[in-house]
């Protein structure tokens, strides 16, 4: 859900715009370390992937369905800085070409969905992979946990912004309970989808999962041979 114009007052919108621009400037520089000169084509294609995946509907039952937000997923797959770039590009394109999310709220949307979800998701994945055993399963679990917490974290950040620069006087506890409670549910869906997607990529191309790169260097090539010859 993209914040539209008029939800957050003008000074707060400008402030989130500055935060978003600053983070993007750092991300542009750091993404070069993750992707070198491949940045534009790779980040562009990953952004197109995130955009398309947001259209993949996951049925919840009773005719309703949800879709992925993708912040934590992008962080696990391509690394945090590239993920911030990709998510921000997706939000920018959605705002300008699809009128989804207000232009004055772009800074807010980038901060919440492009930066908070990626930062929280990546932080948790990093902690889990450092603490947990060295195996692909740890990365999958970390991705799921990161996604689970990244969504309510973004909702929490939204409540903070709304308290500071919101345009209505709502009791903080009411808003917090409603927003965070609802987003915990969304986060559960996000967690399952993210974990499934990451484990699927890990099975086919583990080298493409940024958060699992440390596994590849320690994993020796294992040649599996048939012990039992096929009966003919």
């Amino acid at each position: 859900m993209h914040v539209p114009d008029g939800f957050i007052n003008a000074p707060t919108s400008v402030a989130t715009g500055v935060v978003a621009a600053g983070a993007l400037a750092v991300a542009l520089r750091k993404a070069g370390d993750e992707l070198d000169e491949k940045t534009a084509p790779m980040a562009g294609l990953v952004a197109a992937f995130i955009f398309a995946t947001q259209m993949l509907n996951f049925p919840v039952g009773a005719g309703t369905s949800g879709h992925l937000l993708g912040g934590a997923l992008a962080a696990v797959l391509v690394g945090p800085w590239t993920a911030i770039l990709c998510m921000s590009t997706v939000l920018l394109v959605q705002s300008l070409l699809f009128a989804d999310g207000g232009l004055t709220a772009l800074g807010t949307n980038v901060t919440l969905m492009g930066i908070v979800t990626v930062a929280v998701g990546w932080g948790i994945v990093k902690i889990v992979t450092v603490v947990g055993p060295n195996s692909p399963k740890t990365v999958v679990a970390g991705a799921g946990l990161g996604a689970l917490i990244s969504v309510p974290a973004a909702a929490f950040a939204f409540v903070g912004l709304f308290e500071f620069g919101g345009t209505a006087d709502i009791r903080l506890s009411t808003l917090m309970a409603a927003m965070v409670g609802w987003h915990v549910l969304i986060g559960v869906g996000e967690a399952v989808i993210t974990a499934l997607t990451v484990s699927s990529v890990l099975a086919v191309r583990p080298d493409l999962v940024y958060a699992a790169r440390h596994l590849l260097s320690t994993r020796p090539l294992e040649i599996r041979t048939h012990t039992k010859p096929a009966t003919s």
Partner: peptide, 28 residues
Amino acid sequence: TQPRHWPVLGHAAGALFVRSYERGERVH
């Protein structure tokens, strides 16, 4: 139609990522 089917969709999303990434490499 239901959450039980999500693994299939997860594989689809994973495959789409691999294909997008590889397309990115080819384009580059």
